[in-house]
Design a protein around this nucleic acid. Structure first.
Lengths: 217, 217
DNA sequence: ACGCAGATGTAAGGAAAATGTAAGCCAATG
DNA sequence: CATTGGCTTACATTTTCCTTACATCTGCGT
């Protein structure tokens, strides 16, 4: 089933990756950052809806089309309420599937040209290069803004020092003491973004890097 | 919610009137002829989109910013297709709201070329090429006036040195020492526009450029 | 055409802000 | 309790902006 779908969709011009378990799926979602996820609810071990719940909890921006044989109204409602964007019950026609995929991707692309990025009460205006929290303007320097924006664009994902060195500092190699530069700049950014507020958005992931997100339960 | 918005927006310097029903809203739109309508889709009786449809049907020239908790992609697309100019889902940051309002009003105001531009107590007459502050005429040279006018046309927005070089000095490239020319001219303009007064309208945004605006909190 | 005055452009130096560097400390981990 | 990674502080360097003085240009009256 999975193999047939992949070859069919690839023939139709989509770029497809398949996962055969919930764990592999999670890994791919995090690394590839796909535009859309076809989620089969009848997974081997884990409940498909749990997968969806976790994805939504992490705040990943991802269209999800649920694919299942449980085609009752209850399942439909529960799936959509959990955060799915569309629902398709088996058996389905391949044409209908591609039509729905196209519809979802079209909407996805329409909502893209957003000038703003928002994480909790933090709002970033990429056009005027200003940021504010709690309706209060933040006074950031050029590099501080670049750093915050990069973290915001990767919100919910841990960004490594390597990524920061490459994408924010544009350093090809990392044998320079760029490591400490990042730490210092991060501290300066925190002083302005997090220190004056109750909820801390800028968290450290020891051994990996940093992440910008709303604190979880 | 409505009351909080009104007081917040009035504090931010907008002239605001609130309606608590679709009918009252129609009445106000017809009598006050506002520049912009903040439309909450979750109205008591009538569907907010119907209101929008009717306004568009009557051909009233009015920016409409939809405000709603239905923040799904479908609603977004439908709202924009019905004729809204912008869309903001709850919960939203107040800063983002004002930024979007400003963007819409700017587009609106840009479309009708006016003879006068005012920023605070500064008033510029584009026709006679004169400017005054606090009812006192400013004695500006040709280039000083061009510079001030350009900043005024982009008030509230940061203008870069690149923009100034291109649009005020009409220099195609910027490898000339135009950079310093801008600085010097800016200093001369400041001496006349800002130095004799208490509130400074001409601010520099380090690393980006300059901005003409009333000082904020 | 000439010279004057105001306007504009150029260059150099200095001040302040931003950014980078280094060293020591602290906290987590095994 | 040692090791590693991260944080903090103080200081050095770089960048950006402002200022000043002077050079050149332009328009205008004679």
């Amino acid at each position: 089933m999975s193999a047939a779908l992949v070859s069919g969709l690839e023939a139709a011009g989509y770029e497809v990756s398949a996962a055969n378990s919930a764990e592999e799926g999670f890994f791919l979602v995090h690394t590839l950052r796909p535009d859309l996820l076809l989620l089969d609810l009848t997974l081997p071990q884990r409940n498909g809806l749990d997968v969806l719940r976790q994805i939504r909890k992490e705040g990943i921006d991802l269209r999800v089309l649920i694919l299942t044989s449980h085609n009752t109204v209850e399942d439909r409602v529960e799936g959509l309420r959990t955060g799915a964007d569309d629902y398709l019950g088996k058996p389905f026609s391949f044409t209908e599937l591609t039509a729905r995929i196209d519809a979802l991707l079209r909407r996805f692309l329409m909502s893209l040209p957003s000038q703003f990025v928002t994480i909790g009460d933090l709002s970033i205006d990429t056009k005027s290069r200003t940021a504010s929290r709690n309706s209060g303007q933040l006074d950031l320097t050029a590099r501080e803004f670049d750093l915050l924006l990069y973290l915001a664009e990767n919100r919910g994902r841990t960004v490594s020092r390597e990524m920061l060195a490459k994408d924010v500092w544009h350093e090809n190699s990392r044998f320079t003491p760029i490591n400490n530069v990042i730490d210092v700049q991060m501290a300066r950014l925190r002083k302005k973004v997090d220190d004056p507020f109750e909820v801390k958005l800028l968290q450290t992931v020891r051994g990996l890097g940093f992440i910008l997100r709303e604190p979880q339960s």
